[in-house]
Simulated scan of single mutants.
Amino acid sequence: MTAAALGALGGVAGLLAVTVLLRRRLLFVTVAGLSMQPTLDHGDRVLVRRVPLDAVRAGQLVVLAEPVDGDPGGGTGALMVKRAVAVPGDPAPRATFAALAATADPVVPAGRLVVKGDNARLSRDSRHLGYLPGTALVGVVVRRWPLRSPAAPVAAGQPPAGRRRIASEGGTG
């Protein structure tokens, strides 16, 4: 093999390695539903950085595995996007979250977080589910990805090829 061929092969291998590393850290998702309006609309794409719970701050948009009814610790595989309202150690917002009213914790317990959709009327969030487990956290939204053309909207419930769908509407998360 020539030096040029070896160099090209090394460049391809390096590009492949970088791609694999980026895919472990970053994820593109497509919003499905209206619970994050006006911040995010149905069909918007977002870039998500995978992070542990201790890297999340109140106010950030987060992506979580959607809880299974009756088991907030489980997930369906579908994803949901919400705004982190309180993270471990923050005061527990019991007065505004009915599902937290009966808890005695003055602060959000370790390994848990409180989330809410920006469009509260259409959002299934901590007001209904209580504390969500940090193990359900996928990551934080880094930015909206401006690839969707206004002339070519995404059909309801159909994410573009190669993208994960985020559930964010009333009954789906």
Rank of each mutant, 00 (worst) to 15 (best):
R83S: 04
P106S: 10
V68L: 09
V81N: 03
A98Y: 03
A92R: 07
M36R: 06
S149R: 14
K116D: 11
L61V: 02
W145R: 00
L21D: 11
D44S: 04
G89N: 10
G130L: 02
G70N: 09
G14T: 06
L137K: 08
A136P: 01
A99P: 01
P67K: 06
L21Y: 10
R124D: 09
V56K: 05
A156N: 09
D105R: 08
R23L: 09
L26I: 04
G173Q: 02
R23Y: 04
G162R: 05
P153D: 10
L34C: 08
P146C: 10
P106V: 07
L53F: 06
A17L: 14
G7N: 13
R94I: 00
T19N: 14
R112K: 14
A58P: 14
D41A: 15
L113Q: 03
G77H: 00
A95P: 00
L61M: 12
G70I: 08
V87K: 02
L64K: 03
P93Y: 08
G139S: 07
R94K: 10
T30G: 15
G170A: 10
V12C: 12
P150L: 10
A8R: 13
A161Q: 09
G43Q: 08
A98C: 02
R24G: 14
P133A: 14
V18T: 13
D44L: 02
P93A: 06
R144F: 09
V62S: 06
V108A: 11
L61H: 09
G171M: 03
S123E: 12
N119R: 08
R143P: 00
V68Q: 03
G170I: 01
I166G: 02
P38Q: 06
R23C: 01
V46Q: 00
G14S: 04
R127C: 08
A92G: 02
S168R: 02
G157L: 05
A95W: 01
V154C: 01
L129D: 13
E169P: 00
G43D: 10
R127P: 09
P133H: 10
D69P: 15
L132P: 03
V114A: 11
G74N: 02
R50M: 04
F97E: 12
V142D: 07
V56D: 10
V63R: 02
V107K: 07
D44K: 01
T2W: 04
L129A: 11
G75L: 01
A55Q: 15
V138L: 13
G59W: 13
T39S: 14
A151D: 13
R45C: 07
R143K: 11
L61Y: 07
R148H: 05
Q158M: 05
T19P: 01
M80L: 15
L16T: 13
R165S: 10
F28A: 14
L6C: 11
Q60D: 13
P52F: 02
T76L: 00
A13R: 04
R24M: 08
I166N: 11
T76P: 00
D90C: 06
R148D: 12
L15G: 15
T76G: 01
R164G: 00
F28R: 15
P38T: 04
P159W: 01
P106A: 08
A4L: 14
V141Y: 06
R121D: 15
A156M: 07
F28W: 13
L6P: 00
V29L: 12
A120C: 02
P109I: 10
A78T: 03
G89W: 12
A86F: 08
D125G: 07
P153F: 08
A13I: 05
R148P: 01
